[in-house]
């Protein structure tokens, strides 16, 4: 077992255990904090995958943005969830069964397929600059890039209009 494999196991253990806590904790704020931990674990996996920029983005958007948004929502709506009731609804057993089944099918499929036959190459040093080039390249992802700005514009106006107090 190499050092990197141990690191991988640590990061995935953090991710998965924290994710389990997210879906089972009764206290929603604890669940949100565990979600932050889970996101950090995923960022660790990205570092192992040699995508440091995406690890940064993971922390930047998920921890800085989405988690903050979710914690604000929890704080805002906190008083309306009865803490004495169980955290899950009536279909939780069925949900757990379905998801366990799906998980085993997925793992069975993953293990049953020969994914790579050659060793993957090195990540080029200018990987992030290449990403920047392809994002604004008309042959590359220019259209999705501009559509993203339209999406952000629409969400900016739509979400604020919905959430605003009038």
């Amino acid at each position: 077992m190499t050092l990197q494999q141990i690191l991988f196991l640590i990061f995935s253990a953090i991710t998965l255990i924290a994710a389990l806590m997210v879906v089972t904790r009764r206290n929603l704020c604890h669940a949100a904090l565990f979600m932050v931990l889970s996101f950090f674990g995923v960022a660790g996996l990205y570092v192992l995958l040699e995508a440091p920029f995406l690890a940064g983005v993971q922390v930047f958007i998920y921890v800085g943005g989405i988690s903050t948004l979710i914690i604000f929502a929890i704080v805002l709506t906190r008083d309306v969830v009865d803490p004495t009731l169980p955290p899950h609804n009536r279909q939780w057993i069925a949900g757990a069964l379905v998801m366990a089944l799906l998980c085993s099918v997925l793992i069975w499929t993953v293990l049953g397929y020969q994914w790579t036959t050659t060793t993957p190459g090195q990540v080029p040093a200018d990987s992030i600059a290449r990403l920047g080039t392809i994002l604004v390249d008309p042959e590359g992802f220019l259209l999705p890039f501009e559509v993203t700005s339209v999406l952000l514009f629409a969400v900016l106006i739509g979400a604020i209009t919905i959430a605003r107090e009038r």
């Binding site: 994002l135 890039f145 900016l156 605003r164 107090e165």
Partner: peptide, 25 residues
């Protein structure tokens, strides 16, 4: 209102992340 602030922040965050690789190149 604080909540709408976080929404605006999140969307600008995403926009900044899209611009950063371009700024690098």
């Amino acid at each position: 209102q604080y909540y709408t602030l976080v929404i605006v922040f999140l969307l600008f965050d995403v926009a900044a992340v899209f611009l950063l690789p371009w700024a690098l190149a």
